[in-house]
Design a protein around this nucleic acid. Structure first.
Lengths: 340, 340
DNA sequence: CGCGACCGTCGAACCGGTTCGATGAATCAG
DNA sequence: CTGATTCATCGAACCGGTTCGACGGTCGCG
């Protein structure tokens, strides 16, 4: 494998001249530049990533910490990941995907060893043990998800509180008086998944203000528990005419449950979910939903991260907490209520 | 950030001694070793990955090339990826996930620049343009999926031909005489997804031998096309009593279609799919299926890859092509035929 | 014609590890 | 007591890039 020394020799110049000819960081005569480029081409020269990282203190790699838990719906995570890797590549970076269970150790490893220029964290917990590490690290970091304390980090998330209110408002305007909200499984909350109760609490609060009844329950993540839960709930609250779903597995299971019960949407039951359009397509979900925009969030996080990585000025800017505002995609699964 | 020079100074020894004390590659007195370890601990020393890569010509990173196409079912891919990243980490490696559309360029980039010690390729095409690159690369490579020409590479795949035969045999033994096989969308085949016709051709051949009628069609990958297709097929072949599915999207869509048509499984229709247990759980699919074992395949590929990376002897061993034999998980979705 | 400015190129140092050969002290046998 | 052997440690070189300061040649100007 050719080194820059080989290129220099082939072109009859010094190593430094070859370097400058390739990088353009100093003026080089047209003649020499041509010779160097030709030599590089002929020898199929590619700079050694390790050597360059050592010399420049830049690896052109971003770290992506994502965790896959039994009780979370894996396909939903994938879209965030693709948002990150694709955007990173567009900006000239590769992505180190770390799915290790011990996130703290993983983060330490990749930051301390300088394998990455920056880190994107997913599955953010309210009191996330990785955040202190990331704040102390020399590399900038970006979060997809809102933690309790955002200090020192850029944060990107869906505005889950507003999402909860939008859902409730929408059904309230249609005349509904009793609703059910199914959240993620309780385990997710116990692990600190704050978005679950951010949406939930906001929805409850808004329902209270509007004088609505809102039954807020934690869901399941797997069959057959999901189906059972749905059936139990529909039985338990026969007067409920609207269903709000903040749980991908429940959303995915609803069509068949509704079918089995002979439940028509929206005639018998109005439904609003919170998931991405891509997810809806994959699982053919015919419900109106709040777009969770995972690819957009991943992309935004990477863009901001790269800005900070590449510019000292940007690194000094104040940290941002940016919420995507919930957009309701109307698929016609809501209507004025009729009692079931 | 502390370097090994800092550690050496703190411990009052030379850099080389510090290095040997930490690596244990030469005998070091107990006393000095203690001092060095204490210094490393005190300074929170972590070796610089770039420097180490430069010196040792090892990065402790594996590349994983995976592509996500519109017409393939993304959630199924995720399990291969997790099989790879988790096993890699167990063996001390991190994973560079590359989802770039231009796989050839991506592969060139990560191998030429020596970012990775080895590469796992997914989405293998019959005549995969990346293979010549990988064969010429200094790093070893492993494939998840069988290409036309396996020379110079380790290959891991489900035995799709045997899978096709197992499916047909199973329904034949139960007395079925007319079957439908739904494969992946034709686009997948056009891109060179050989596993599609390997299963298909083997199934057709076996059906011919057994005197069965087998309607082999290409499926769709998205709703609502998938549902329409299923309905059309069931209408077009009313005498078919068995359905073989080599297409995740179709499998995922079948429950609701069956339900809508009032079609009972297995009373009216026997069904066998080809997907993983994990996939079945995620999508709550109640069908007997051939296990595609994505995590196991990903894991096997990484283990073999790492063996070759770490041992010169292993690098000289002949290349392996290893097939996982199709296991039929009986979920009771097949029975002797009754005409619909 | 001589001086300073500018341009293009070179050599050397550096990034932070690893590794080889040499060195000096301690140990042992004769 | 000496010479060979062993052992722990050190210094230097190397991996393959980038970058800084210096240097020699050309040019324009006075």
């Amino acid at each position: 494998m050719a080194t820059i020394g080989d290129v220099a020799r082939e072109a009859g110049v010094s190593r430094s001249t070859a370097s400058y000819a390739l990088s353009g960081k100093r003026p080089i005569s047209e003649e020499v530049r041509r010779r160097v480029l030709a030599a590089a081409e002929a020898l199929a020269y590619t700079p050694n990533a390790g050597a360059r990282a050592l010399a420049t203190a830049q690896t052109k790699v971003l770290g992506l910490l994502a965790q896959f838990h039994e009780d979370e719906f894996a396909p939903a995570m994938l879209q965030y990941i693709l948002g990150v890797t694709n955007t990173a590549r567009d900006l000239g970076y590769d992505t180190l995907l770390v799915t290790e269970a011990d996130g703290v150790r993983a983060l330490r490893r990749i930051t301390d060893s300088r394998m990455v220029d920056g880190v994107v964290l997913m599955n953010i917990a309210q009191d996330d043990a990785r955040l202190p590490i990331l704040r102390a690290a020399p590399q900038p970091g970006a979060l997809v998800g809102l933690p309790g304390d955002c200090a020192g980090l850029d944060v990107f998330d869906l505005d889950f509180e507003e999402a909860g209110r939008v859902m409730v408002d929408h059904l309230h305007r249609l005349g509904h008086r009793e609703l059910i909200l199914i959240s993620q499984p309780e385990h997710v909350v116990e692990r600190g998944g704050a978005y679950v109760w951010r949406l939930r609490d906001a929805a409850l609060e808004r329902a209270r203000q509007l004088g609505l009844t809102l039954h807020a329950v934690y869901g399941e993540s797997r069959q057959p528990a999901v189906g059972r839960l749905l059936n139990d709930l529909l039985d338990a609250y026969p007067a409920a005419t609207g269903l709000l779903i903040n749980n991908e597995a429940v959303a995915a299971a609803l069509p068949s449950v509704a079918h089995e019960r002979g439940l028509r949407v929206p005639e018998d039951l109005s439904v609003i979910g919170r998931y991405s359009a891509d997810f809806a397509a994959t699982f053919s979900l015919p419900y109106s939903h709040i777009e969770s925009a995972p690819d957009r969030l991943g992309s935004m996080a990477v863009r901001q991260l790269v800005r900070r990585v590449e510019s000292t000025a940007a690194r000094k800017e104040p940290f941002v907490v940016r919420f995507i505002s919930p957009e309701l995609t109307d698929r016609g699964s809501t209507a004025p209520p009729h009692s079931r």
